[in-house]
Nucleic acid binder design. Sequence first.
DNA 1: TTCTAGCACTCCTTAATGGAGAGTGCTAGT
DNA 2: ACTAGCACTCTCCATTAAGGAGTGCTAGAA
Lengths: 344, 344
Amino acid sequence: MSTAMDARARHLLKALVESYIADGQPVGSRQLARDAGLNVSAATVRNVMADLEDEGYLCAPHTSAGRVPTNLGYRFFIDALLHLVPLSPESSQLLLRRIGAHAPDTDQVLHAATVALSELTHMAGFVRVPRRAMRILRHVDFIAVRERQILAILVTDKGEVENRLIHTDRPMGAGELVQAANFFNATFTGKPLHEVTQSLHRELRQSRHEMDLILRSAMELGEDMLEMDEQRMLIEGEFQLLDLPDLAGGERLRELLEAVHRKRDLVNLLDASMLGSGVRIFVGNESGFAPLAGCSVVTAPYVLDGEVAGVLGVIGPMRMPYQDIIPLVDNTARLLGHALSLPS
Amino acid sequence: MSTAMDARARHLLKALVESYIADGQPVGSRQLARDAGLNVSAATVRNVMADLEDEGYLCAPHTSAGRVPTNLGYRFFIDALLHLVPLSPESSQLLLRRIGAHAPDTDQVLHAATVALSELTHMAGFVRVPRRAMRILRHVDFIAVRERQILAILVTDKGEVENRLIHTDRPMGAGELVQAANFFNATFTGKPLHEVTQSLHRELRQSRHEMDLILRSAMELGEDMLEMDEQRMLIEGEFQLLDLPDLAGGERLRELLEAVHRKRDLVNLLDASMLGSGVRIFVGNESGFAPLAGCSVVTAPYVLDGEVAGVLGVIGPMRMPYQDIIPLVDNTARLLGHALSLPS
DNA sequence: TTCTAGCACTCCTTAATGGAGAGTGCTAGT
DNA sequence: ACTAGCACTCTCCATTAAGGAGTGCTAGAA
């Protein structure tokens, strides 16, 4: 077992993967010998291909059908053979316009980024929403909606609003609500959310406030706001996955779509990829998430006010034009982080 | 051309449609003669079927393949032959629990109803959100988020919250914001939204307020809230449409999914069906909306505080079990209206 | 050695063929 | 007005055959 992969083998592997990405057809020795630019015969190419197959980079769908990259083949291609194509200034401009158009409204910016990812790649695009643990509490309000029902509204420094209906055991007077809000704002405004919920925990344990119930609910709202983050993810262009030529329009396809729609498992995968920095690629089953077999996921974390706040990317077929997709995802992450960060 | 459709023809048409709904297979004369319960020969059945075909109720995919109901066939079946099966008490209970579980939070109730529709029918379920024109304004708040940026928050009597970032030309003091909010609340709280926006229009035309900008923005927010209704619709279970056996997994399917996802045209269709009362059914191209060819839409308007506020329903294959679906949609509309109306 | 050329073999793909089955329309008889 | 019989049509499926693409192997050339 030669540790192999000399220059010629690499060149051929590269040509093969590129050809397969372009056509989706298994590529045979004759075609490869012709197109690769090397001046070697098909027979020689065959020998090299046989070696590459032994080493797990290629496989043949059947005896006489040419060869196709394996997971490992893609992996090596991406890691060692790929030449990234920098994003064209036009695309870059377009991206900037689309993402910047809705600033500073966080939700709209996130949505725009998701749609842009999907449309520019013709694949499914997703954006994991920013974590809000570090967000600063700006304002809290309690509003009586009905006899025993209070609406708690919580606003962060980025203008994000979260609200929740609270049911109380007894009717609350307007004065009580104002008092509660005043106390809350005086005590907590300007502090990060995770600190607020902690402080509230302590506060509630120590003393019996008049307004225990309200405060407790507000705390729960705050906690939910943090926990809810665990779930929130935007996805657009799921239907682009419909014409993955590979997944033979059958049960697998539906599983994939439902899994993506459900988001839960995807979120776990993405959170893991927030730890590193820079673009990250999961080829096929590397994600360890069964329905994604046959797909690749390209992700990049984005930075908000100096902290990694979330991650975005695309889901598409394994044979995607990585050289274009990777810079695009990378740039989108950069632009999104920028658009969401405080305009100085 | 006998004006036809005697008792026997009706009976056979009914049996044929039911058989086709159950199997999805074109049904032939022999099978129909056997299963219909009538004691007539296949040849007789053939004659009747030929008549029904002449009159447009049936058609044959090809010379020797049995017959299939046409649009008109389904229409007649639904209008004249269908015996509704009342919703079982268990299903009714289940529905009630699922929809009631999240009351009184409007958004959650709507979502629960959508999911329930989808899951109980194994088709795509949708809920058009309630129109908010009649909603009463409960509270308005203006919060400074940054130097020249204000968050306007608007709350209705049902606890619905809408918010908007407003950019101002000059920095606003906290006092100004409080003053604006006070004015706004004193003047408009308790009035229906559509009245508020009208009054604001007048107000702004007459006098130059100090806080013109803020008020104008608030008005726009209110108007947007009303306009946005035009777009808001919840859909769940779109993927159930994947295994419509008819649409041959190809381009048509994708068009359908995208059209449903896009919502726009669907919303128009639904708004039209809010005018009538009771369950309404669009078979195939009756909706006049191309991508829906091959599908049926079953809708029912729901009533909120005595007014028709929205419409909900399901989208599925033309051959759906109407006798079960119709009562289910009907009941869901009733329960949803109830869950959203003021608990006395 | 390392590459090339040739050759036999395997396997998929496509098209053509032909029977089986199902259903119809028509006609004649009850 | 209904039924039975019959010839005909059309689809579906399995079988068959030809064609093509690609491989692995072996022997000879650089």
